[in-house]
Simulated scan of single mutants.
Amino acid sequence: MCVSDSNRRDFFRTATAAGITVAGAQALGAGAAHAGERTAAAGDRVALTRVRVFDGNRITAPRTVVVDNGRIGTVALGARRIDCQGAVLLPGLIDAHLHLRDVATLRQLVASGVTTALDMACFPPSAADALRGLPGLTDIRSAGTPAVAPGSPQSQLPGFPQDAVLTGPEQAHDFVRARVAEGSDYIKVVIEESGPAPETVQAVTAAARSLGKAVMAHATSTATVERALAAGVGMIHHVPLDRPLSPALAERYAATLTVAVPTLTMMEGFAGLGIPGMDYAAAEGSVAALRRAGARVLAGTDANLTPGIPVQPPFGHSMHHELELLVRAGLTAREALRAATSLPAQSFGLRDRGAVRPGYRADLLLVGGDPLADITATRDVLRVWVGGIEHVPAA
């Protein structure tokens, strides 16, 4: 779960006491966050020459891409030039499932080329708010507090809001309204064998839709996936570890336009704990079934530092592993790259990113190899831009 960052608050308190504005403190904080890296300001105009671009389908011949005041521009006149010598430019990666903690997690994401992070549980609301809109750091969205069942592990976390522990459908509307008031970008419900009851999940989904919010469902077994599909949620996170999704269930994803975020990295980790009934082959087989059915699959890692969770994928690095696992499960390298760029941007309504296109945010990842030929090439991070601010990872 995301927790508040006392160091960041102390920084702002000290900065403002010294007469620095909040905006100035943010800029200083972002620069200080990347000690050991070189950065360039968002206002710079930069022309990336001799760069090959992943356009969503193929990798182009060498061309010039302009970064201009935080966006992808078209005019290279007067720009500082960077000769990319044939390196490959990707849209910044989007992790569709993680659990933020503090500014340090954003720094780790940037270093690996993850420029957008979609948090799936974070409380209190001030913790997520503290990580929004920091210049040069990974851009975030958050579910805030998820709906859970009484007695669930989440409900017993210190400080967990009790209005999110749902005992019946009559609480759903107030739960959703509270999350919307707190600024949650979408609504999450954790579906486990023990609850919430199907009618409660359906009520949460209906309440969220009435307020224009998408619903994310946590489901790690065939039974809970069936419950999520029956409720009509927009997106199901994780895949079963008990047995692979049947062709019929996978086809229900496709027919209902339900998006899948398998989080294979987390599934692999839990299956490796030796817990009876958890088999990674089931997760891998589920992804293969979803692909055959034509369902939309997104890349998400479940990176976290949550106390008590035995599997904690590292922020940033785990995205590259997730891409590799998706390819091993049957996606092509092209499909895996889309799962981490254009598809999550479309699925979450982020219309200004996910592609290297004029007018889009300059969220970019320059890598040293060809990820269509070998997906592991995404690990060779040469440079990253977040909203036009350039980062060159330390050696």
Rank of each mutant, 00 (worst) to 15 (best):
G269Y: 05
A197I: 02
T14N: 07
E284I: 05
A339D: 08
Y186R: 15
V356S: 09
A178C: 06
P135E: 02
V189H: 05
E170L: 09
R13P: 00
A281H: 07
A283Y: 07
A336P: 08
H320Q: 08
L257F: 12
G136E: 04
L331H: 10
I140A: 00
V311R: 06
V189S: 11
L211W: 00
G294M: 11
L273P: 04
R291P: 00
L350G: 08
T145S: 09
V259A: 09
A288I: 00
P314K: 09
T49C: 06
R177F: 01
F270C: 06
H97Q: 07
T16R: 15
L134T: 06
G232H: 10
V327A: 14
P313R: 13
Q108V: 00
A181T: 09
V180K: 06
E324M: 08
D352Q: 09
S221F: 07
V356E: 10
G24Q: 07
R334S: 05
E193W: 12
R9M: 12
E324W: 05
S286G: 10
H238W: 12
V215E: 02
S6F: 10
Q85L: 11
M235H: 00
L131C: 05
A18Y: 06
A164R: 06
H238M: 12
A32R: 10
L89R: 09
D363Y: 14
A15F: 04
G56P: 06
E251T: 14
D129P: 00
R379V: 15
E268C: 11
F11I: 12
P247C: 10
R252V: 14
E226F: 00
V190F: 09
T39C: 09
E268N: 12
G269M: 04
A230I: 13
T39Q: 15
F160H: 04
A41H: 01
D68E: 13
V65I: 13
G285H: 04
M235Q: 04
G300M: 11
I275V: 06
G369Q: 12
A394Y: 10
A394L: 08
A293Y: 01
D380M: 12
A23Y: 10
T376E: 15
L109Q: 11
T116K: 12
R50E: 08
I72W: 11
E251H: 12
G86H: 14
V311L: 11
A203Q: 07
R132F: 06
A40P: 00
A30H: 08
A223N: 02
L131P: 01
A288L: 07
K213R: 14
R81W: 05
R63S: 14
L229W: 05
A79K: 08
V392A: 10
G19F: 02
V65N: 15
D279V: 14
I140L: 01
E226R: 04
G234M: 10
P91E: 09
A128H: 04
M1Q: 02
A289I: 02
I389L: 10
G31E: 14
M278L: 10
Y253R: 03
T16Y: 01
